[in-house]
Amino acid sequence: MVELALFALMGLGALAGAVTVVMARNPVYSAMGLLATLLSVAVLYVVQLAHLVAAVQVIVYAGAVLTLFLFVIMLIGVDQVVDTDERLRYQRPLVGGVAGLIILFAAALTMLGDFDWVPPATVMNPDATNGTVEAVAVPLFTDWVLAFEATALLLTVAAAGAIALAAYRRRRV
């Protein structure tokens, strides 16, 4: 019951945030809508007992990535008039039609019921009611340690490369 109420509330929050991202006139409000969506989804993760995923979602996406977005939006300045002339002729009705079809399809599936693309989870670990850091950390640092370290190296190289590209100045010939 509590789970359903939370899901409904946070699902609505995520949707409202997503609509705000697209519809807001001011990009700062779009960023805030994205924040609302990310936080709502984080709460949904907590409802699914994936505490670690929720924490990482908030730290990485809501904390770091979105702050960067906000910084860029604010420093570039959003006060300039944006050209909002419509140059799309048939894209809008097309997207609307496709979205309608998808919604109809989903509604039909839900009405007719009988499908199991995602089989329901049968085994639930009763001890994992308070977070799952160990469950993620142990495989990550034993079975998948090579992939983990390789990814870390890749990200470091990418960051160093980005800085090098930004700092590189072509010498005057």
Binding site: V28, M32, L35, H51, L52, A55, V56, V58, I59, A62, G63, A64, T67, L70, F71, M74, N130, G131, T132, V133
Partner: peptide, 25 residues
Amino acid sequence: DLNIGLLFILAMSSMAVYAVVLAGW
């Protein structure tokens, strides 16, 4: 008493940044 206590603290302290940015802007 969360299993992810320290991560939660870090997450919340990064949320606190928004107040300052938004207030300033």
